[in-house]
Design a binder for these strands. Sequence first.
RNA 1: GGGAGCUUAGCUCAGUUGGUUUAGAGCGUCUGCCUUACAAGCAGAGGGUCGGGGGUUCGACUCCCUCAGCUCCCACCA
Length: 882
Amino acid sequence: MELSAKYNPSNTEDKWYKYWLEHKFFHSEPDEREPYTIVIPPPNVTGILHMGHVLNNTLNDVLIRKARMDGKNACWVPGTDHASIATENKVVAKLKAEGIEKESLTREEFLKYAWEWKEKHGGIILSQLRKLGASCDWDRTKFTMDPDLSEAVINTFVYFYRKGYIYRGVRMVNWDPVGHTAVSDEEVIHKDTVSKFYHLRYFISDGNGKPTDKYIIIATTRPETIMADAAVCINPEDERYHWLKGKKVLIPLINKEIPIIEDSYVEMGFGTGCLKVTPAHDVNDYEIGLRHHLPVIDIIDDHGRLNEKALILVGEDRFEARRKIEGMLLEAGNLEKVEDYTSPVGYSERTNAVIEPRLSMQWFLKMDDLAREALESVESGKVRLIPDKYRNTYRHWMENVKDWCISRQLWWGQRIPAYYMPDGNFVVEPSFEAALEAARKINPDIAAEDLKQDEDVLDTWFSSWLWPISVFDTEMPGHPEHRPNRDLAYYYPTSDLVTGPDILFFWVARMIMAGNEFMKDIPFRNVYLTGIVRDKLGRKMSKTLGNSPDPLDLIEKYGADAVRLGMLLCSSAGNDILYDEAQIEQGRNFCNKIWNAFRLISGWKTDGDAAQPAASAVAVKWFGFKLSQVLEQVEDHFSKFRISDALMTIYKFFWDDFCSLYLEIVKPAYNTGIDRQTAEATSEFFEALLKMIHPVMPFITEELWQSMSERKAGETIMLQRYPTAGKYDAGFIAEFEIAAEAVAGVRNIRQQKNISPKETLELHVREGFPTDTVPVIEKLGNVKVSADAAFGDTASGVTFMVRTYEMFVPLTGKVDVGEEIAKLEAVIAYQEKFIETVRKKLSNEKFVNGAPEKVVAMERKKEADSLAKIEAARASLAALRK
RNA sequence: GGGAGCUUAGCUCAGUUGGUUUAGAGCGUCUGCCUUACAAGCAGAGGGUCGGGGGUUCGACUCCCUCAGCUCCCACCA
């Protein structure tokens, strides 16, 4: 077979992915083996692949492929999330572009459009994951709005309602005026925002609704809400305002009389010390309103516009109203001054709209019991967070959690199974039929058409928190006599979860709650939290900045293996990763290196009669030991989720140890065959390396594994056993390293003296230098090694040290004596300074007595080694100066 | 405002109970090579007073205090 000098991924990737699918290598069924389970963090059903997905799913795939090769029954369940608010927004926008307003549609009509959209765009991301090589069990693909998964969600709602955890009530919620829905506290992002601080004059009423000439000044950032003021509040301790007690003031522009009240909530030092109380539009004001029985005047509608209760500026958007009322207040003489002011403002995570605190009827889930247990799961170490710094964050959140607002004023999602009777009472049942039956027990006259289902749907996370359970068994929640089915019993709890820290609370914490509640067990053992992918300037990737490359373009250009390696190279857990295309080039280069190593090996002709050269024998022995040593390190890295370290260890092992050392040693001379022993060992080593690399770079390793010998139909590298470490002789490995350093020393001399690698040199070592590895030095260094008691006249060559071994290369006529003297003097100076620090330690009684014996012995060895080096350098120096 | 974390070579990061660390790696840089696997390569080299200051210790990149800078999370000061 003719192989090109460069690896071409496009020839192999689709071919092997198809092969894997055809043979159902990704598919898992319960059996007697130990399971290893991962559920995918379900991407938005209409989402497209971005760099964050690439990082996350590559990590997942590495873990699942490694587990599969370790002999476990590996199951990676893929799927998508219906993402209610995000998807509904997309559908609304698309309809709007076609001239259709959501308001003009019925719920059923809208949902029809939404499902059409989902059918058309849904799941694109899953096909993109295939390009990446993700070994998901596609037969198990799930969607959070699959009928059975939805049923599980509804049953969960009913379950918690019956348990008394779900309640309905009017509360101040975070209203998203663009999404037209309430959102949970977790979906509000506070950002410091520059706004204005308006100082307004509220005139004191004469008692008959007429202004006197006295006024107080109230500072506010929201002058458009003054019409909703219910009172003005002062601190009872504030002597400046004692004269106000019992008086009334007039709201500017509308001249409405409101009382002065006192509450210690008001900070005397902040603003003017007078607070306008607007219960309908501020959470704190609402609390004050409750304490003082103030009326709630809601002047802002679903869209963030002023309604008729505002009396003025009716129909204006809240920000437009703010702009206009400023002028009106100024004109009316009520505006004292305006200051620039920066304060935190809440924004909707999904729509980026400024959140409007608003009173509305919502459904809530009580969190305290659930949170307590979920905290315990992490505190006890049953669930491990990696890196563990997130435990602090997690604890803080769990100890301060508030009830979860689970209703959303949307249509796309699971509809709340509450059914209202004409009198306003409601029943909560899993189906309309059950609801009707339940309703008739209360009122036998209820007709089907009298029963109206709640209009709201449930928060998306109310379905995804069941994900590790519901992907296996959707009947689980709410069935008292239910027994976990075979899949759930086998695969649950899952093993590892890889996800971003941004959804630690949204998703991870709540899955732990659901797991504890329904399975009486944690949903996963390890949570590996990745960083956020940023560009090389450290900026978040975003569409508007245009700094986010399309992963598919990268795969097209460099190959999936290169993209995977590039992403992993710099991705320690929990740290943000700075993406740079150079890393992916590095991945591509590595592919090419592997490819060319194969080209070299596969071109060798085995010569059955040839004896194994001494150097090859040493190389084979060393590499076998080294393989075991490296495997030990790799397993250690994997066990600690240090994926990039594991990868780098393998990368260097392949490139430096295998290619630069091993292959260069065993490589037969041009047109010469290779002996059978070395050929077979090399082939085994190469196969072991391919297996080690496979979890990270599945395509090229399959391609080469299939090419290296005849494989039976249906065989694959992905089901081979990952190599395991055997015993090794660390002393021999160390000895080999000395040989490699000697080679580097010789090469360094060649470089300095401009001597061709083709010219064979003499290398003298002292007697006592380890002899086993000499053939390697001779081959790689192109030298003839001889061991002598003394080097003779070293002035006609170059001496150098490898560790404590002195070496000499005769180079008649090529030595610049002055240069050599300077070099040796530098060595002596350095060593003398070094030995001084060592001796300082050794002469310190406290050190000698206090430090462990091993440490003291080491210092003594340092001293001896250093002395030997000085002595050798001095001897050479003396020879040069003769 | 509260909390967590970070600061080690030009860049990105390791450094795992304070002692084989005389601080490592990858990339980049510099020098020499078109050597018949690979120039997406080979060989060699240079590069850091571990953010500043103080302390504990026989010994500190590692522990404590302090200052500075950066990042993230949480939060209703109008």
